[in-house]
Amino acid sequence: MKPLSFVALGDSLTEGVGDPVEQAWRGWAALLAAGLAPPEAGVGFHNLAVSGSQTGDVLERQLPAALELRPDLVSVIVGVNDTLRCTFDIRAVAARLDEIYGACAQQGAQLLTACLPDPGAMLGLPGALARPLARRQRAVNAVVHALSERYGATHLHLAQDEWVADRTLWSADRLHPGERGHRLVAARFHALLAARGLAAGSPPSCEPQLPSPTRSASLLWLATAGTGWVARRCTDLLPQLLTLAADEVRHQVRGSSARLDLSATHAVTAALAALTAAEQPEAA
């Protein structure tokens, strides 16, 4: 019997950023892989995730390599970096995720997906700047929820308030889980897979081997490396984000902020409807 094969796709979250081990990143996917099967059975694990990846990167670069491996399990967690770009288009994001999920499911792989908190909340940005990013992340999460159901994915909810509020789960950068957070993600995925008979090994421990970052360490990161991190990823977004923030303030003053939420909801509905329409056979 061949060992269970698990391939992880995505961005820095899945690459393991925030969970350093021996001068490299480990992360939740590696922790999960170790508990998918008994030691004597073995697990073939390949982490193809790359920091900074967007849905287009996963579709064009990571997916072909994953399909060649013909895995039993495929995790696809991506989308936050899309929300940080001026090119953000929920319809395009939905189409790419649908193609990625569909290709994996067609090979018979079990999908693992997750919805994520918005980066504005994690960084503690002012409301007018945070709300547009939150709206984008909610849109991505809504698409992920719908497509996860369509393809029978094992889905993990990581956008809840308690996950965001517990700073012991996060690394000093406040955007990536620390060791404790990565272990919790791995343990929660393991529990969901075990309930479906897809994980027969021991669950990953939730107890970290390293201490959580102190508040002073977090503040130091934000004052030094954090500024550069945000600048590198938001260079093309910043002008648009300022425009979005100004629009946010105008709607707030007029008492019409609900229109922005409604517009985002309609965009998600249209994106999912477009996928359904594309699946319909053409009339004779």
Results as ranks from 00 to 15, higher is better:
T269Q: 13
G178Q: 04
A187D: 01
L242D: 09
H266C: 11
V144H: 08
R215S: 14
A92M: 03
L193A: 08
V21A: 14
D11I: 05
L48K: 05
R91F: 00
A134I: 01
A121Y: 12
A186Y: 00
E15H: 06
D19C: 08
M122D: 05
L156E: 07
Q54L: 11
G42A: 11
W28S: 10
L220Y: 06
E22D: 13
S202C: 09
R250G: 05
T243G: 15
D72A: 14
V17G: 00
A217P: 00
S75V: 06
A92D: 11
G124D: 06
L123G: 09
V58M: 09
L13R: 01
G10N: 02
H266E: 12
G152H: 07
R138V: 02
G124V: 09
V78Y: 08
R259S: 09
D19I: 05
T87K: 06
Q107M: 08
T87R: 13
A8H: 07
T227A: 14
S75W: 10
D57H: 15
R136I: 14
L272R: 12
V43M: 05
P204A: 15
A66Y: 02
E60G: 04
R91D: 11
S51N: 10
V74I: 15
R250E: 11
D11R: 02
R215I: 13
D82Y: 12
K2G: 07
H46Y: 15
R136P: 07
P38Y: 06
S53H: 07
R85E: 15
L48E: 11
G102T: 02
T269Y: 03
H251I: 01
L63F: 11
A187L: 01
L123P: 01
A103Y: 04
D72T: 04
V185Y: 05
F6P: 01
L147W: 04
Q106Y: 01
Q107C: 06
R174F: 09
A246R: 13
S53N: 10
